[in-house]
Design a protein around this nucleic acid. Structure first.
Lengths: 137, 137
DNA sequence: GCGGCAATCCCCCGAAAGGATGATTTGCGT
DNA sequence: ACGCAAATCATCCTTTCGGGGGATTGCCGC
């Protein structure tokens, strides 16, 4: 997969150079122009990464897990299941917040509800319970 | 959350407009310049999205199994393994202390060493790591 | 007998987690 | 239109964790 990154980057670079050459006189006349381009590229790259991480990558992973019956019985919401997955991975509240694109407080709320519904006192408890109940593999 | 996307976009747009204004004479002289910028922005945006999706959505490749003795490789002591089992069960340090008949401080020491050896920052991390490494089922 | 190591315990202190509540927004069903 | 549940963010407060130290005991190997 690393190859495709490089390929993509190479194509982009090639296109950029081509356009730059075509428009050479106007655009490379000053360094300010270059800086401008650089900022645009960097800004949109960052925006893209951000969007990709939270906008695109989020809905996908929540396909399914083992036991819909147990989930329904416990009344776990979809969002709570996402948080549960993160707990399974041993992540901190802050990390979960960043990954899901919500605030720390929101994560704490979700976790608190998970603890209630799973009748667990700690997040580690919740993980153990979830495994027992077959909610996760 | 949609608000933050808009906010981000708005800030970026504002910055862009500012720079464009500052560099007005040079860059807005022709439409070709605009097209150039647009392509750069779009290209890097796409690249960013792609990278973001790839970077996050990939599931960690399971290394090796080895419930046999990857333990030896990590240098885990017998007592540490006992504590690890308790961590698996989602118990608190105090509960572990009571169960193993040692003081809270001792448990904390064992847990701290486990975190080091498993290269984990949190106990939940340690649990996830232990599973990856096949130390436990 | 000395060095190393596992196991035990202690203290301090900042960071993370958890409990209790309240509030707002949005979508959904009647 | 109204009520409800889910999701979001918040504040205050307590408990638990985790990271620095440091220290003692007992065992094993050389």
């Amino acid at each position: 997969m690393g190859k495709r990154v490089l390929l993509y980057g190479a194509l982009l670079a090639a296109g950029t150079l081509l356009l730059q050459w075509l428009d050479y006189q106007r655009l490379v006349r000053s360094h300010i122009g270059d800086l401008y381009i650089f900022l645009i590229a960097g800004g949109f790259l960052a925006l893209g990464v951000w969007l990709g991480v939270r906008g695109i990558a989020r809905p996908a992973p929540r396909a399914f897990d083992g036991n819909p019956q147990a989930v329904a019985a416990l009344g776990l919401s979809p969002r709570e299941l996402e948080v549960l997955d993160e707990l399974l991975a041993g992540r901190s509240n802050q990390e979960i917040a960043d990954k899901l694109g919500v605030s720390l407080n929101t994560v704490k709320t979700h976790v608190a509800r998970l603890l209630e519904k799973l009748r667990a006192k700690r997040r580690g408890d919740a993980v153990a319970r979830a495994r027992e109940l077959g909610i996760v593999k």
